[in-house]
Nucleic acid binder design. Structure first.
Length: 435
DNA sequence: TCTGGGGTCCTAGGACCC
DNA sequence: TCTGGGGTCCTAGGACCC
């Protein structure tokens, strides 16, 4: 919409329209592309340290396995049904994601990559009569070019496009493509009446029971509820969601991912760490990761936070958890300066006698590297040239090729990934071989 | 034996100011 | 009896997302 002299000019004859495309069981589908034996079998992908289930194939969902279940609790069921487990391979999924986004991006000049497995496309220019066919072409092309199954949903707002995608995925009659904007009102009402309110984007597991207690148990009921009342009872966030369900866009497409406001790197250990030396190695390593992300987006950090904790699931073990934030004398992006601050933090936090299970580093108070406010008195400003060289070497030869000595060599706390597939698309040595 | 990682936004409440 | 009123800024925590 163009605003001039208080008059609005519509530059497009078409009302706003969005598509949401996402990969079905994305991580599992990526594994299947390179290992067709997994096709038709129950497959799960596990979180770091092979901890819990983060992706499930259709066959696993049918067995009633929920998202986030610890893998060790599934051992019996897995044996019984021959469930195949894979450690998560983010190099593979990240690369497949980039390829998928490139293919999907061909269908619109406006694309917002929303997560590793889904993106929104601006669809204003596509006439209503052609949308469903467009969705079918997208599906066919993702399948043929990438080997990935995707579903496509169309709606007048992002919330409606998400909902349409849900319908495309769950209702076989739609054949993987759903255009909510094309449904006659009576059919739309009937459809929304049959969808649980908890499926709406932005209604979480806390909100769902509260809404149901008030009689709003399906999407139609929520759409037709009084927005002002909802705002009072719940929040402005839910009020916006309801406006979106009614076709009023409240959330714009964000094509350029804005810079992060905080950067975190944290990980549970592969084995408990008891001594300060082990924690120091881990924290130095996490700082290295976070600082790399920081420099990639051209920011500097004004403060560093470090936290450590024991295993909260071991209730009979002594528990300890603490975090500490320290401001830096002036914003920095040099790994060595950040590590110095983080390690000083850690030494204040550390208490002997505990089995530490996780540590994390957060970079806060980020500012643009080009507009840094200098400190009044001279401080160590680090060495930008050295950081550039380090980042380039690591980009070329792999993460950690050049790193701080403080990160250690042995790294006994490194995470476990016992069932990882090869990095088929990102490492020459691991290319798939065709016989 | 064994339970992920990385973000954003909003709100309430406290500290502090005049 | 009765102890102001209004504003800003910061932080912690909750809720949500994938």
């Amino acid at each position: 919409m163009l605003q001039a002299h208080g008059v609005s000019y519509a530059w497009s004859q078409n009302s706003p329209m969005y598509a949401l495309i996402d990969g079905n069981n994305f991580y599992v589908s990526c594994e299947r592309v390179f290992d067709p034996k997994l096709e038709g079998r129950p497959v799960v992908v596990l979180s770091n340290n092979d901890g819990c289930v983060v992706a499930r194939s259709q066959e696993v969902k049918a067995l009633g396995v929920k998202m986030g279940v610890p893998w060790f609790q599934l051992r019996d069921l897995a044996k019984q049904h021959g469930i195949v487990a894979k450690s998560s391979n983010y190099s593979l999924y990240g690369d497949m994601s980039a390829r998928m986004m490139a293919v999907l991006g061909r269908y619109s000049p406006e694309q917002e990559v929303y997560s590793i497995d889904e993106c929104f496309l601006g669809m204003d220019g596509v006439p209503g009569g052609e949308r469903a066919e467009c969705g079918r072409r997208i599906r066919a092309q993702a399948r043929q070019w990438l080997g990935l199954p995707v579903c496509v949903g169309f709606g007048a707002t992002r919330t409606l496009a998400k909902l349409a995608n849900f319908v495309a995925k769950k209702r076989p009659a739609f054949g993987g493509v759903c255009d909510l904007a094309a449904l006659p009102p009576a059919e739309l009402d009937a459809l929304l009446d049959g969808i649980d309110v908890g499926e709406v984007w932005g209604v979480g597991y806390r909100g769902t029971p509260r809404l149901k207690a008030l009689g709003l148990d399906n999407v139609k009921a929520l759409r037709d509820a009084d927005p002002k009342w909802l705002r009072r009872e719940f929040s402005v966030v839910l009020e916006r969601t309801v406006a979106e369900l009614n076709g009023t866009p409240c959330i714009e497409l964000e094509e350029e991912a804005p810079n992060k406001q905080q950067i975190m790197s944290s990980r549970a250990f592969g084995a408990y760490v008891y001594d300060l030396a082990g924690l120091e190695e881990a924290v130095a390593t996490y700082v290295g990761r976070a600082a790399e992300k920081l420099r990639r987006q051209g920011s500097r950090a004004g403060a560093v936070q470090v936290y450590v904790r024991t295993n909260p699931f071991k209730e009979d073990h002594p528990q300890y958890q603490r975090g500490l934030t320290v401001p830096l004398p002036e914003p920095a992006d040099d790994t060595r300066l950040l590590a110095r601050a983080a390690l000083a933090c850690l030494r204040r936090l550390y208490k002997p006698g505990y089995a530490y299970q996780k540590a994390g580093v957060m970079l806060l108070d980020l500012s643009d590297a080009g507009h840094a406010q200098g400190a009044l008195f001279a401080t160590d400003r680090g060495n930008p040239a050295l950081m550039r060289v380090m980042d380039r070497i690591n980009a070329c030869w792999g993460r950690g090729t050049l790193r701080l000595a403080a990160e250690g060599v042995h790294q006994g706390w490194r995470m476990r990934r016992g069932m990882m597939s090869p990095c088929y698309t990102t490492r020459w040595a691991e290319l798939p071989v065709v016989r």
